[in-house]
């Protein structure tokens, strides 16, 4: 059995659907960060059979609610003094800004610098989102990985 120590202060992203952990890591742009990060794949789970898990040390003040776009089943626990002080149940977001990148070459976001990429949920069942500018539709269930923009908060923090 692989043992990873509990963290004193930080964030634990738990109950990640097995296989999606790497995508969440990619979204968080974690490979450029200086924080201590533990990534566990295919851990046994009573609820789901297998799950992935991410622990990030020393970070608590960040908004991870958009993670529901990638995996609405995941949970986020905020840890302080080895205790869970806040538990966030992720939901499928209604609207995301600068998370999904519009791939339509005719979309204005392909030429207008600084324009926020805005997508709005149109079908909860299919997890389909529509670009607010050009109406192009993407499904988060399908092959969406390339459309997800990387969050830069960790990179920014680690450069401080």
């Amino acid at each position: 059995m692989l043992v990873i120590n509990s963290i004193e202060k930080g964030i634990v992203i738990d109950h990640i659907t097995a296989g999606l952990g790497a995508k969440i890591l990619n979204y968080l742009d974690i490979d450029t960060s200086e924080h201590t990060v533990a990534f566990i794949m295919n851990a046994p789970s009573k609820k789901y059979g297998r799950k992935d898990m991410i622990k990030i040390n020393d970070v608590t003040d960040i908004d991870l609610s958009d993670l529901g776009l990638i995996d609405p089943k995941a949970t986020v626990n905020v840890i302080e003094n080895h205790k869970v002080v806040k538990k966030i149940r992720l939901e499928i977001p209604e609207r995301v800004v600068d998370v999904i990148k519009c791939k339509n070459p005719r979309c204005v976001t392909s030429i207008e610098r600084n324009a926020p990429h805005v997508f709005v949920l149109i079908d909860r069942e299919e997890r389909e989102y529509k670009c607010e500018y050009c109406d192009d539709i993407v499904s988060m269930k399908g092959d969406w990985q390339n459309e997800i923009m990387r969050k830069e908060w960790l990179r920014i923090k680690s450069r401080k």
């Binding site: 339509n104 005719r106 979309c107 204005v108 976001t109 392909s110 030429i111 207008e112 324009a115 670009c131 607010e132 500018y133 050009c134 109406d135």
Partner: peptide, 25 residues
């Protein structure tokens, strides 16, 4: 010519915007 360009306009304009055609959109 780009789809959704007038929506960019609505985000910054102080006056009403009318879309007179944005590409094939």
């Amino acid at each position: 010519p780009k789809e959704g360009a007038p929506r960019i306009g609505t985000m910054v304009s102080e006056v009403p915007i009318i879309n007179a055609g944005d590409g094939g959109h």
